[in-house]
Nucleic acid binder design. Structure first.
Length: 257
DNA sequence: ATGGTTGCCAAGCAA
């Protein structure tokens, strides 16, 4: 049976609701994980998703951050506040559907490598890794980590390595933390199916999308039992070119479960 | 080039 999981930093779910509803109608996604919903739970546009047959799991806050996972199948478990480092800001929500755990995550941006925000970013990534290694087995558990990780994983994931030296999103310290997290035993689903350079985020400024100046900072990482079940993974770049887009494009992974 | 754009929410911050 086909099972599709989408991650999308929507940059405000209320500002993006038309694009999101249109996307779900066209794609019939089983699970959509949204980041930067920028809305507290009581103000979340629930009806638009319920009308399309989705169950909703929310962890929102006013103005900033906020994550939401919607699923056609009911959730068997919903969990927030997974680890200490993300306690203050609402950035992570775990859902379980059958035997598959999906963790929807919005990693801190980090502002600049000299800032407190950057130290928080590193603590967040390290705390997240600890939570995963303490609670899951990469060999046995079916676990999917998705979201806006705000770090480009490899050189191919940035538009120009030289101009990204020391910059936020590609600083050696955050890459080291991210790769350490990855090496717990994840596989980058996108790279199972795509060898070329592609991006998932383009700055709103300076016509970055038109010039294809972007980064691949959104990911779908899967544990070992899911590798052979994953049938495709791609970035829906067209979505970034539509009217009133998010600065991130959705990424879709399909599974045969 | 320390700019530019978007969103929240009504000034300035975060991205």
């Amino acid at each position: 049976m086909k099972f599709s999981v989408v991650t999308w930093n929507v940059n405000s779910v209320r500002a993006r609701i038309k694009n999101v509803v249109e996307f779900l109608k066209n794609n019939e996604s089983d699970v959509l994980c949204m980041q930067e919903t920028k809305v507290e739970n009581r103000m979340f546009p629930k009806e638009e998703f319920e009308n399309l047959g989705y169950n909703i799991a929310l962890f929102g806050q006013k103005r900033f951050n906020g994550v939401a996972t919607v699923s056609k199948k009911p959730f068997d478990e919903v969990k927030t506040k997974l680890f200490e480092e993300e306690d203050k800001q609402r950035r992570v929500i775990l859902t379980k559907i059958n035997d598959i755990t999906i963790i929807n995550s919005y990693f801190p941006n980090g502002k600049s490598p000299e800032s407190d925000n950057f130290r928080y970013k590193l603590e967040f990534i390290n705390g997240f890794r600890k939570y995963i290694e303490n609670n899951y087995s990469s060999e046995k558990d079916k676990i999917i980590i998705v979201g806006d990780f705000n770090v480009a994983k490899e050189e191919i994931d940035v538009y120009d390595v030289n101009s990204m030296v020391g910059k936020i999103g590609f600083h050696p310290k955050e890459r080291e933390a991210l790769l350490n997290f990855y090496n717990w035993g994840f596989t980058d689903a996108f790279r199972l199916f795509n060898k070329e350079q592609e991006f998932s985020w383009w700055d709103y400024r300076l016509s970055s999308f038109k010039r294809n100046i972007g980064l691949r900072i959104d990911y779908i990482w899967i544990s070992k039992p899911l590798i052979n079940l994953c049938t495709n993974c791609y970035i829906d770049t067209d979505e970034r070119g539509k009217e009133k887009p998010s600065d991130h494009a959705p990424m879709v992974a399909s599974f045969d479960i």
